[in-house]
Design a protein around this nucleic acid. Structure first.
Length: 882
RNA sequence: GCGAGAGUGGCGGAACGGUAGACGCAGUCGACUCAAAAUCGACCGCCCUUCGGGCAUGGGGGUUCGAAUCCCCCCUCUCGCACCA
């Protein structure tokens, strides 16, 4: 597409000729967009104080900050456009809006780049940031760049180290020897949250179990709070709250100890069904359980079984088939209540060391997994819960365990109690006997934050042989990453560094070893929203600033962070509160999760993926290879990915159509929470609209009247109603994330202006058109901010204001009432005609007019009206009989 | 399996329980043009003969004067979780 050369943006006084629309000037976005971006920057339109004194209500809107991969993608465009619309709208509504941007800058890709291309991770990262900042700035986002920071800057991570030490002093940090998820490809530990289907979230490699000494943040101390507070997050999507609740995974049950038959040792189990204790037929322990290890040490077959379980882990085959595998240790345990009864102890692959105590008692009659296991290995199935109405003599378990309600039987002192009463009774009995107690269990584990990586925030600890793990004194922070590292061998470069880790113990001065692990990068993003409030302060957060701005009123990002990042941030905020840094508990009052940006994929005849630019769509509907004309197969519409080559480069779109077009299209296609499809035709359509808005403004040249006329003709009145209805409708749509609807309403206003252009000249019409075009520009300014400024500057060349500084238009209530209303007339619920009546006309008048409509008369022929329904200004329904 | 969400023209989608399909994309016809692009105008759910009807919001029931919308049952799709004891 060629863009015609432009005439000057601001017409001179002499330049009043209105060219014919066909040959009219085009909006030169390439000149206008940088100009307005500069104007906003010069006027500091988006600046706010750390602790404002302007008395305005505050509004903190923030999108998830990007990882500096080097290029922005369409997901970023959607994310930041959504946030920018809200920021600009709220500013116009009189809020003091903070809208910051930064960089989630630590992470593995920088190290990979270093390994593959010999670039230092810092160099690579800062280069990428520079490139991406330019791209974001081209989008015309109303960001306050003065608050920008990158998490890899010592000026940021030194405060993170301070927070960690404060958490440590507050008892929220532990060093634990524990089984960890080891990613053999990335050569590092993963948090539970980073293991997906038994594989590393980044590498996709099957995760191994390994025992390591690690730093843990005590997120489990907040499990109950994090769960309870979900109910109050009423501006979060229901499904995110649910995902978090499931992840936290509270369950009520009991912990009890079984004593081994031939020794004084005990095995602890956790159960949510203590009421089924009399239905027990075996005890099962996880392959990683200490008893399993002890058995394996003297029994080669057991050792073999345990090793098999470990190598298979939670991977493919076992999980998919759900096959239960077990090994009988030969050990037996005693029943706590049945004198003399003992049960076999099995090692079972379906028992997880990480959950509960790593051991269960098996009650096959009332647990499906236990039942499958029992059937496979010929263990007893003893029903102890009788379903309502069932006959105790004949009730048996076949292929389905019974997990419903009922009364206890075959259960000694529990007989006759319902499930809940039986649970209470058995817990009481266990407590009396001193072998168990009621216990709430959590699925949530403490957050392991140690990573064996270079490009991350150093953990500020020094290991001394006398004093153990010693915190680095606050006045020695930050612990800086050394620049001179090599990536020529696997493992952690910090550990390989010749001198960095050798330091003196802060307590005794003896030679000691610096902690060489760095923080999980999710730590970096767990508090950055707080840092934005006072980004240059010499403390992590300035309390007056965070207490003013927090919580974030609207946070926007992808659903993929529903658990990891959002849960960690919620935890961190609470921990910061408990260490005196901040007063709020919840970081994000409102959360919006956007859908993905998808695109068609294309394949050539020889089955290669093709880039959209390589493909041509012919007018006859065929799709061919642009260069050769060979046929192309159009594949599914799916998430943009490099491997499928169905990516669209935002930079190319902005260069071709301008930022406003990209923003407009990405908002207009569909509701923002759903996945959208980027189409070339849709983008071209959005571009046409930008040009059309510009032409509507151009067509006003020479039609300037400043005073609002006293009287308007019919066309003027119609247009003014359309204008003010549009204000009301767009406002409502923006308030409820209905951006696609807001766009539709603006198209309607543009159509109404076009109608008015064609109307016969009448008094006041020129003024009404001017009002309509001005309103169109101002209402579309959150979405197309540059075009809005351009149009506004043409309408008011001398008033010196930017749209970015104006208040939101107000609808005149008098113009929201129609001159006449169209009322649908139904006969027996079917539409038979419409009538025009004055608004709020009395029922008698409306009904009489309705009954007189010729088509209604016909429909009523031979029928008796049994009821007349009249909904004012809406509908009339004649209910008929016969 | 459990949980959540969604099913409306060729497509994306509108629609306080009140004229279903706003608006856009695609398409058809026309104007302008040597031509194309751009622009402008008209049409654009399906069926019946036009006036006018009939059928239509995944399927089946129900509530209601009136249901895309509320209730019940079923089907399909998407996403999340998943040996959690």
């Amino acid at each position: 597409m060629r863009i015609a050369p432009l005439r000057p943006i601001h017409p001179t006084m002499n330049d009043t000729t209105t060219p014919a629309p066909e040959s009219g000037p085009r909006y030169d976005f390439a000149a206008a967009e940088p100009k307005w971006q500069q104007a906003w920057a010069e006027r500091a339109c988006f600046r706010v104080d750390d602790v404002p004194t302007d008395g305005k209500p505050k509004y903190y809107v923030m999108e998830m900050f990007p990882y500096p991969s080097g290029k922005i993608h369409m997901g970023h465009v959607r994310n930041y456009t959504l946030g920018d619309v809200i920021a600009r709208y709220k500013r116009a509504r009189g809020f003091s809006v903070m809208h910051p941007m930064g960089w989630d800058a630590f992470g593995l890709p920088a190290e990979n780049a270093a390994r593959e291309r010999g670039i230092h991770p810092a160099q690579w990262t800062y280069d990428n940031i520079a490139a991406m900042r330019v791209e974001l700035q081209r989008m015309g986002l109303s960001l306050e760049w003065e608050r920008e920071f990158a998490t890899c800057q010592p000026e940021y991570y030194r405060h993170q180290q301070k927070l960690f030490l404060d958490f440590l002093r507050a008892g929220l940090v532990e060093r634990k020897e524990s089984w960890v998820n080891w990613d053999p490809v990335d050569g590092t530990v993963l948090a539970n949250e980073q293991v997906i289907d038994g594989r590393g979230w980044r590498s996709g490699a099957p995760v191994e179990k390994k025992q390591l000494s690690q730093w843990f943040l005590s997120i489990t101390k907040y499990a109950q709070e994090l769960l309870d507070a979900l109910d109050k997050l009423d501006r979060w999507p229901e499904r995110v709250r649910l995902m978090q609740a499931n992840w936290i995974g509270r369950s009520e049950g009991a912990r009890l100890a079984f004593s081994l038959a031939d020794s004084s040792d005990t095995v602890e189990v956790y159960t949510t069904r203590p009421d089924t204790l009399f239905g027990m037929s075996f005890l099962a322990i996880a392959p990683e359980h200490p008893i399993a290890a002890a058995v394996a040490a003297r029994d080669p077959d057991a050792e073999k079984f345990v090793a098999e379980c470990r190598s298979r882990g939670t991977s493919e085959a076992t999980i998919e088939t759900g096959e239960k595998l077990g090994y009988d240790t030969g050990l037996r345990v005693r029943h706590p209540f049945i004198e003399g009864a003992t049960y076999p102890v099995w090692i079972a692959n379906f028992v997880l060391m990480e959950y509960g105590t790593g051991a269960i008692f098996g009650c096959p009659a009332h647990d499906q997994r236990d039942l499958e296991f029992a059937r496979k290995y010929g263990l007893d199935v003893i029903p102890v819960v009788l379903p309502p109405g069932a006959d105790p003599a004949s009730f048996t378990i076949a292929k389905e365990a019974y997990v419903g309600p009922g009364t206890a039987f075959n259960s000694g002192f529990l007989d006759g109690l319902d499930v809940d009463a039986a649970k209470r009774a058995v817990i009481q009995a266990l407590e009396q006997k001193g072998v168990g107690k009621g216990l709430t269990n959590w699925r949530l584990r403490d957050w392991g934050v140690s990573r064996q990586r270079y490009w991350g925030c150093p953990i500020p600890i020094i290991h001394c042989s006398t004093h153990g793990a010693v915190p680095v004194p606050d006045d020695q922070l930050p612990v800086r990453l050394p620049d001179d590292v090599t990536f020529d061998r696997p493992g952690n470069p910090l550990d390989h560094h010749p001198t960095w880790k050798h330091v003196a113990c802060p307590i005794c001065g003896a030679p000691a070893r610096r902690e060489t692990d760095t923080f999980d990068t999710f730590v970096d993003s767990a508090w950055y929203f707080g840092r934005y409030c006072s980004p240059t302060a010499d403390v992590p957060v300035v309390k007056a600033a965070v207490d003013h701005w927090m919580p974030v009123d609207q946070y926007i990002g992808g659903i993929e962070h529903a658990i990891l990042h959002l849960l960690y941030a919620r935890f961190f905020t609470r921990a910061m509160k408990d260490t005196g840094h901040i007063s709020v508990e919840e970081p994000f009052a409102g959360l919006f999760t956007q859908g993905m940006v998808n695109h068609e994929s294309y394949r050539s005849a020889d089955d290669r993926w093709l880039y959209p630019e390589e493909v041509e769509k012919r007018p006859d509907g065929s799709v061919v290879l642009r260069e050769t004309g060979e046929p192309v197969t159009v594949g599914r519409v799916e998430a943009m990915s490099k491997s499928r080559r169905n990516t669209i480069d935002p930079g190319a779109i902005i260069a071709r159509y301008g930022a406003d077009t990209a923003r407009w299209f990405i908002l207009s296609d569909n509701p923002p929470e759903r996945d959208m499809e980027w189409t070339e035709s849709g983008a071209a359509g959005a571009f046409r609209f930008t040009q059309r808005v510009f032409r509507l403004a151009e067509a006003l040249d020479g039609a300037r009247t400043e005073m609002m006329p006293d009287h308007f003709g019919p066309a003027g009145r119609t247009l003014r109603r359309a204008t003010h209805r549009c204000i009301a409708a767009v406002t409502e749509a923006l308030e409820s994330f209905g951006f696609n609807v807001a766009v539709a309403r603006l198209y309607e206003l543009a159509n109404a202006i076009t109608d008015a252009e064609r109307a016969a000249p009448e008094a006041g019409l020129a003024w009404a058109r001017r009002e309509a075009v001005e309103t169109l520009a101002r209402l579309s300014s959150p979405m197309m901010p540059h075009l809005a400024e351009e149009v506004y500057a043409r309408l008011f060349p001398d008033n010196g204001h930017l749209v970015a500084e104006l208040n939101w238009p107000e609808a005149d209530p008098a113009l929201l009432v129609a001159e006449s209303v169209t009322i649908a007339v139904q006969v027996g619920g079917k539409l038979r005609g419409t009538i025009e009546v004055p608004p709020n006309a009395p029922a008698e008048v409306v009904l009489a007019a309705a009954e007189a409509d010729s088509n209604v008369v016909k429909a009523l022929e031979g029928k008796r009206i049994v009821k007349r329904v009249h909904v004012p200004n809406r509908i009339v329904n004649f209910v008929v009989a016969g």
